[in-house]
């Protein structure tokens, strides 16, 4: 600025107001958000445990020891040999829990990715093109919403046979509805912005507009739905496994562990409580992260 004859180096009012970049602002917000930090922290720890499970687990999760069945965990008078005790086949509970994190996280991530791709494609197409595309997608969403997920999943798994792969694919193909609904609504909102019209007036192609004008501005909503659906998929896997139609024994899955412990629940409640608790912690962490991401990526206001 050269317009005044004031000594500008000392005048505080003359300093140019340049706010932080969106990246800087995001960083500022992330580190000010307790819930997000806790969620990410817990999830990070669980992810670390899942990846390095072979190094961390004290025992082979599949090794049975019929002589030492139903050993209680340390805090109920057990020994450090089996910190969380053993199950009805004498398998080390802690090791199964550690390997179970792999199953849960894998199911969450892969199922959410599959459904994310399907739902986002449908939702963005419906929101951007409108008209008939929108009618068809909306119809498909409604059809999907009319189906009870658990029953359909049970039916498919009953026919196809339960396995990790089948459960992941079935959940991936079932959980896209929320992606489609949210992405459709966000796209509808963004496509009305003038910068999209400007890109069209420039002559930009439709894929380019969707990819570089629309997607970056709806990505924050997408991330939130991804976390919600991850949690959803993890819980559904537990439900299916509990009902005996999910991951099959002897795979260590938290849902299966609850299921196997349920017969002894009245006498040895920890068999159910320990896997239930970690499942709760994982889902809570994912949801905390999702809520946090929604807060910190909310679009800037005009100020």
């Amino acid at each position: 600025m050269t317009m005044t004859n004031l000594d500008q180096t000392v005048d505080p009012l003359l300093q140019e107001i340049v706010g932080p970049t969106p990246g800087q602002r995001l960083r500022g917000r992330v580190f000010g958000h307790m819930g997000l930090l806790i969620g990410v922290g817990v999830l990070g720890v669980l992810l670390f445990i899942a990846i390095f499970a072979p190094l961390l687990a004290p025992h082979d999760p599949y090794a049975q020891a019929l002589m030492s069945r139903m050993k209680p965990p340390v805090f109920l008078g057990g020994t450090w040999e089996h910190p969380l005790g053993t199950d009805h086949l004498g398998r080390d509970y802690l090791s199964r829990l550690i390997y179970g994190a792999r199953v849960s996280l894998m199911i969450g991530v892969i199922a959410a990715t599959i459904s994310g791709v399907i739902g986002t494609a449908m939702g963005v197409a419906a929101g951007y093109f409108g008209g008939r595309v929108d009618t068809v997608v909306t119809f498909l969403i409604n059809v999907r919403l009319a189906m009870p997920v658990v029953l359909v999943a049970l039916a498919v798994v009953a026919v196809m046979g339960g396995s990790l792969q089948v459960v992941i694919v079935v959940l991936g193909l079932l959980l896209w509805d929320r992606f489609a609904v949210v992405m459709r609504a966000s796209t509808l909102q963004v496509r009305r912005r003038d910068y999209v019209t400007a890109a069209r007036a420039i002559g930009a192609s439709t894929p380019r507009i969707i990819w570089s004008e629309i997607m970056p501005n709806i990505a924050n909503n997408l991330i939130v739905v991804v976390t919600l659906e991850m949690a959803h998929a993890i819980l559904l896997e537990a439900v299916l496994s509990f009902l005996g139609l999910g991951v099959q024994p002897p795979t260590p899955s938290w849902g299966l562990m609850v299921s196997e412990g349920k017969n002894m629940m009245l006498f040895e409640p920890w068999l159910v409580m320990i896997p239930g608790a970690v499942l709760f912690v994982l889902v809570l962490a994912i949801n905390l992260m999702g809520d946090g991401l929604r807060d910190v990526t909310a679009p800037e206001d005009r100020s």
């Binding site: 317009m3 005044t4 005048d11 003359l14």
Partner: peptide, 15 residues
Amino acid sequence: CAFRTRCAHATPACR
């Protein structure tokens, strides 16, 4: 004076 940054007549006394 808050307008001194945009005023054609601004002088140091405006602070």
